[in-house]
Design a protein around this nucleic acid. Structure first.
Lengths: 349, 349
DNA sequence: GCGACCGAGGAAACCGGTTGACTGAAGCTT
DNA sequence: AAGCTTCAGTCAACCGGTTTCCTCGGTCGC
């Protein structure tokens, strides 16, 4: 019989090691408030190992200890950016001995439910919230409660528990690249209004456009989806004067999906990429390299954002004071075929 | 004070309703083994509502009842196909009063861990497994245990608990389309060997190619990623004779990402889509419509697969016998720009 | 030599539900 | 009128850990 079919319980381990439940519990949890002989300690660990002991999470949670589980609320599972963040968080949580639950928060509709289900029911010790938005029903409830939580990617002003990336620098990186190629009119496709990283990116874009002395820097907003990017691109490409030439020579988008949608829109208008319009997307994901043309992107430390957020949340759970964190890694430009020098008026070959 | 900060417990509800804990528990769980006056029942419900009572999941699990949570193991979070399935499952689980936890199973490396963490620790009532593979460590453990579980998408032969789609028909649908356009040499990019839906798709492809009397139907395997599709495409497009013309006029891929990689490979070889090579992908996801050219796909009932799997798992948890299920919806062809009539030898305009 | 102290570990009371056995009152039989 | 059901609900023993307060034997200080 290769495996015992029944769960080993704490009392089984205690019996096997010849000690009491209390001792086993303290030894296995590494508590300092008791002195145990090394010999006894060893016996306990061996017995637990031999029996394949796993504490019952419910019993543990019930007895007042932690559940060793976290919940991660992300706005859209379909968005690979969030999924990448989630993977980072998941992995780090495991390393720290936590289980992390992934929950999709359909724009707050279920957030209140999730909140109850997860925390009130004692299923998790803390919340990682990537779906914050002004007016989100969860925010109120959280600010009144003592539940450990951090906001990642989308920050909440004044919360003092925001884990973010240096998104302003991503705009600078993208703009520097386009400016260096000779572009003087660059459009930006931002995310929906009110979403912090998107706002920051937009403001940094406008500020840096001013610093560089661009001729114009129009902005349009849209969802983080292909369709959102497509609509915004069409708005930015609508010829202002009568010459039929698009008013911008390059587009910088807030998400990869928007870039894909924008590229489709550009072609629908009969324009070429990058000859007529250059495109730079945000967040480097595998698909970018396989698009036609391959998309130049600004790679952000998504994975690190996830791990940093878990670190911060666990620290909070352990009673350390919260604080805003900016993930240190810098944005990197992934140079591919979707950007080139602009064809200036009169320079048509 | 808009909200009471402390959790209401069962005794609180009992006290408020003027009954005992036992009565509250039975009423709220809708148990039949007790008779309660409608009036009392109403009082209990009202008290629970007024206090915002939420049962503590740990206590509940400990007391032998169900945790009302399921775990969904998927092979890769980065693959939108699985994510779509997961969303279906998640949603249906909620409707049935279950919480569904999403866990990424990195090819079995963590599966044994996940298994312990989730089931042994009493966190979930059952497992939805989309990451089955021959030799997967979890399969052994599961077949020996009594833990409710179902396999979805990737089936396990003889398990009697497979929830699948009619993937054979997706191959037929794709081939019929290409054959109807006049293609006589069609290549298939399959998934990694041993993965059931991929094997079924491949066999159906070969069988139907025979039925239609195609001149040739070569197959190459690759991961479900862009790179996997790219490599496989290069293998299938290598000119066999010396005329430089690719041996196939159309490709049918096992995943959308493979199709994207294949399209990039086709262009790298200096060929045009669809003029030189037509491409049909599997699974219709939003990005398909925004590719260049827009990708013709076979849409599969991914969402329904998720919901059906949850239904089956919950039925198993409720003690009903398991059984294989094939989700009824038929594959639908999403006709876009990546397929066209082949340019036959000598017919070059 | 005697109490104080310390190291090593144990007993038992919780945590918040669930559940089967049980009870008191009312209704039905004969 | 006594006995038997049925109704409506209660009691208390769990579930499997954690934690607080003890105990017990030996050392140490004086």
């Amino acid at each position: 019989m290769p495996e015992q079919p029944v769960r080993a319980k704490l009392v089984d381990v205690a019996h096997a090691a010849g000690v009491s439940k209390a001792t086993v519990s303290k030894v296995l949890n590494g508590r300092q408030d008791i002195s145990v002989r090394p010999e006894t300690r060893r016996r306990v660990h061996e017995a637990a190992e031999a029996l394949g002991y796993r504490p019952h999470s419910g019993a543990r949670a019930l007895a007042g200890a932690s559940t060793h589980a976290l919940a991660l609320l992300i706005p859209a599972l379909a968005n690979p950016t969030y999924v990448t963040i989630a993977r980072g968080a998941y992995q780090r949580a495991r390393e720290l001995g936590y289980l992390s639950l992934l929950a999709e928060d359909f724009d707050g509709q279920e957030a209140d439910e999730s909140f109850h289900d997860l925390v009130q029911e004692g299923r998790v010790d803390g919340l990682l919230i990537a779906s914050a938005r002004p007016g989100h029903p969860l925010l109120d409830a959280l600010s009144r409660s003592a539940i450990p939580h951090v906001f990642l990617n989308r920050s909440v002003e004044g919360s003092g528990r925001n884990i973010t990336m240096d998104v302003a620098r991503s705009s600078v990186t993208a703009l520097d690249h386009l400016h260096g190629l000779g572009h003087r009119v660059v459009g930006h496709i931002a995310g929906p209004p009110g979403i912090t990283p998107s706002e920051v990116r937009k403001e940094a874009f406008l500020r840096h456009a001013g610093t560089l002395g661009l001729d114009a820097a129009p902005v349009a907003s849209g969802d983080f989806t292909e369709d959102g990017g497509g609509s915004a691109a069409r708005a930015l490409l609508r010829p202002a004067d009568g010459d039929g030439r698009p008013p911008v020579t390059a587009l910088y988008t807030s998400s990869l999906a928007q870039a894909i949608g924008a590229m489709a829109a550009i072609r629908d208008l009969g324009l070429r990429i990058p000859e007529d319009v250059s495109v730079v997307g945000n967040d480097d994901l595998p698909v970018a390299a396989h698009l036609h043309p391959p998309l130049t992107t600004v790679a952000m430390p998504l994975h690190e954002l996830g791990t940093a957020a878990v670190d911060a949340l666990v620290a909070t759970i352990d009673g350390k004071p919260a604080g805003d964190v900016v993930v240190p890694t810098e944005p990197r430009l992934m140079l591919r075929g979707s950007t080139a020098r602009p064809a200036r008026p009169g320079e048509t070959p």
